[in-house]
Write a protein that binds this DNA or RNA. Structure first.
Length: 101
DNA sequence: AAATTGACGGATC
DNA sequence: GGATCCGCCAATT
């Protein structure tokens, strides 16, 4: 098992209606600065379909613009369908949906 | 094995 | 306040 697997495990543990940030996951995985590695791992996402990468967002609550899986706007629908609140800014309402381990 | 890159985050200019 | 730079980790080439 490696850092990558731990990331997938953590992301998979995010309940519906809540989101987490790359930094948060990286911190749980062992290093808060590994946010890049987390993003990279999720980008590859060999477990796509099992790991809800759409629940992982920036610290700001925003997602990678242009790298969204099904296309721009899909992520918002997915999270909205799960009960995640969005702001008028198009970002996730962190104060309400931020996953606390 | 080394260099480059890539869904980030924080700090600085 | 906005834009830019640097730093970290892991994976790919």
């Amino acid at each position: 098992m490696s850092f990558n697997d731990r990331v997938y495990e953590i992301v998979c543990q995010i309940p519906e209606g809540q989101v987490s940030t790359y930094g948060q996951i990286a911190s749980l995985a062992g290093s808060w600065r590994a946010s890049r590695a987390v993003g990279y791992a999720l980008h590859r996402n060999p477990y796509q379909g099992k790991v809800p990468c759409h629940r992982v967002v920036f610290q700001d609550g925003r997602l990678a613009k242009g790298f969204v899986f099904g296309g721009p706007g899909v992520q918002r629908q997915l999270l909205e369908a799960e009960g995640v609140t969005f702001t008028a800014d198009g970002t996730v309402d962190m104060k309400t949906c931020r996953w606390k381990p």
